[in-house]
Amino acid sequence: MTPESRRLDGNAAAGRLSDVFVFDATAARTRCGGCGMTAPLGVYHVYADAPGMVVRCPTCEAMVMRIAQTPGHTWLDMSGVAALDIST
């Protein structure tokens, strides 16, 4: 199984992120902390077959977010996100 065929996109992370955010994360313009590219989170690549979900930049492949859930807990690492632009 190649990494390419496992690839999903930000849409697949939207349900999990709705446990954290009141806004829709897929439309939030997200700046990659690695290369500075900015795009809606829906454009980012998601790998969901690890124990958690990993969100990567579609341009430089840097890891921007990791999301893990256990019953009663959500753990979110956003260290690779430089900025989120949310329309309000």
């Binding site: 190649t2 065929s5 999903l8 996109d9 849409n11 454009v43 969901a48 077959d49």
Partner: peptide, 20 residues
């Protein structure tokens, strides 16, 4: 171009609890 991928069925994990 807006894209929604739902993974490649043959490569998907059978017993995973995540919404792949």
């Amino acid at each position: 171009i807006r894209i929604e991928r739902f993974g490649d069925v043959k490569g998907a994990r059978r017993d995973s609890g995540v919404p792949t």
